[in-house]
Design a protein around this nucleic acid. Structure first.
Ligand code: ZN
Length: 470
DNA sequence: CGAGTTTGACCCGCGC
DNA sequence: GCGCGGGTCAAACTCG
């Protein structure tokens, strides 16, 4: 959904970041921003159920095993007890005993169901761990392979034709064409890792003092530098992605009359995530938002899609930059998983060129053509009627698809056949989707695990922040 | 008054 | 070494 502020006639594309990106009351008023997650946050009546996991949640709500319904039962039991006490005045003690007994029973039942849930979740976590171990093993072997064949630069370029052709990617082109040796990566990684260790409050003096973490930081820097670039057609100045951002700079980029704005995540003081917002030079209706880094805190559900996408893209690009076919596999994987019947070249572009590997999501084509191609985008992750269903929904759909994709790419990269059959038991999936808090926490944890696969000295805050508060 | 934005200065890497 | 360009900092400013 495009929300356009008629009062804002300013051509400056990046001067008005949103004030209320994530509102608890759900009645936020978004001025001058493209809302990727509109139907999750505001209008409750506008067909909020877009995806499979949400439909699972719906099933859960009508499921008698659901804790939500269980709460209702508890209330019912309490009412029954009080009804009895009003009927029978003489045997109030017996009635009370009965009521207490019922209460205990219901609590026991509740406990039992919680235990079942825990078992399911444990099982799921085991699956996740197993898949993670598999992935890590594969990653290690690929790294070994990389060390044996250090100079196969041609395979670093997974997809570059599209980016090279378009002036909108001029900065990416610049980055892609510079610095291809490992030495530079290490230097860059040194700087970046010291940044991460010392949070944003650190100053440059501290940065200079931590120059000994060179060995382990190169990969981490790649992770940190991996980017997800979203091209969306929008008059709005900002994409609402569920996070809170603070603008820290604005520059005029060369070759583009529109300024580039720099934002950093402010949901957690130490969060390293940044994003850049810039209009396309050739078509100023196209907004290019580039995300970088992984959040070190739990996120509201709407923010998870983009955040996980960024993290997963980093992971994919990391493996994609190996001297193997992984990059291509992942490229096909991401596009096939999203739009099996769409042309893969136009939707998701994977540029694994050092030092800033970037996944570019081009959402502009479907925004223009969605009236004609409503049935062209069928995906196992969402029903076809949700494809191309309006300006703001499409990005949301894609973000969700990427969120799903990110889970699969991280957990089941080596098992192509399982791509369309996530190994989530229905009960576990229901348990997760029933509770947004847990979903957020778990997704953050998984994202962190994926991120941790690139480094041994991972930031402990990542895991610690992914706690489940109920 | 605090949070967020603006904007010029500064830092750093890279190419010449 | 110098200039250029991208990215970041931080003081001044704005806004609610
Ligand atoms: Zn964050």
């Amino acid at each position: 959904m495009l929300r356009f502020n008629p009062m804002n006639t300013d051509n400056d594309t990046c001067s008005s970041p949103p004030r209320a990106l994530w509102s608890v009351d759900g009645n936020r008023i978004i001025v001058d921003e493209l809302d990727f997650f509109s139907d999750r946050n505001d209008d409750k009546s506008s067909s909020p159920e877009q995806f499979d996991d949400v439909s699972i949640k719906n099933q859960l709500l009508s499921d008698p095993i659901s804790p939500n319904v269980n709460t209702g039962l508890q209330l019912l039991i309490t009412n029954t007890g009080s009804d009895e006490s009003t009927v029978d005045d003489g045997s109030s003690i017996i009635a009370q005993e009965k009521r207490l007994k019922n209460e205990v029973e219901s609590l026991q039942e509740k406990l039992r169901r919680r235990n079942e849930e825990n078992e399911n979740l444990k099982e799921m976590l085991n699956d996740v761990t197993t898949n993670y171990t598999t992935l890590q093993t594969r990653y290690a072997s690929l790294m070994q392979q990389l060390q044996n064949q250090p100079t196969e630069s041609s395979q670093y370029e997974v997809v570059e034709g599209k980016a090279e052709e378009n002036d909108c990617f001029s900065d990416e082109k610049t980055r892609s064409s510079t610095g291809q040796n490992n030495n530079k990566d290490e230097k860059e990684g040194d700087r970046e890792s010291s940044e991460q260790q010392q949070m944003w409050e650190s100053n440059k003096v501290n940065k200079l003092s931590t120059s000994n973490a060179t060995d382990q930081s190169g990969v981490e820097a790649t992770m940190r530098k991996a980017r997800v670039s979203v091209r969306a057609r929008s008059e709005a100045n900002m994409i609402s992605d569920g996070c809170q951002w603070r603008k820290y700079g604005q520059k005029m980029a060369k070759g583009n009359p529109c300024p580039r704005a720099y934002y950093r995540c402010t949901m957690n003081p130490g969060c390293p995530v940044r994003k850049q917002v810039q209009r396309c030079a050739e078509d100023r209706t196209i907004l290019i938002t580039t995300y970088e880094g992984a959040h070190n805190h739990a996120l509201p559900p709407p923010a998870l899609a983009m955040a996980s996408t960024t993290s997963a893209a980093a992971t994919m690009l990391l493996s994609g930059s190996m001297p193997s076919a992984d990059g291509v596999i992942n490229h096909n994987l991401i596009t096939r998983a999203m739009f099996p019947k769409c042309s893969p070249s136009g939707m998701a572009t994977l540029s694994a060129s050092a030092p800033f590997p970037t996944v570019t999501l081009d959402l502009t084509q479907n925004n223009t053509d969605n009236n004609n191609n409503n049935n062209n985008c069928h995906s196992p992750f969402f029903p076809p009627q949700n494809c191309g269903s309006g300006g703001g929904q499409l990005p949301q759909v894609i973000a969700q698809a990427l969120y799903n994709q990110s889970k699969f790419s991280g957990l089941q990269l080596s098992q192509d056949s399982q791509l369309q059959q996530p190994s989530l038991s229905p009960a576990a999936a229901a348990a997760i989707t029933a509770d947004p808090n847990f979903a957020a926490a778990l997704a953050a944890a998984i994202t962190s695990i994926i991120g941790a696969s690139t480094s041994n000295n991972n930031n402990p805050n990542i895991i610690n922040s992914a706690t489940y508060n109920n």
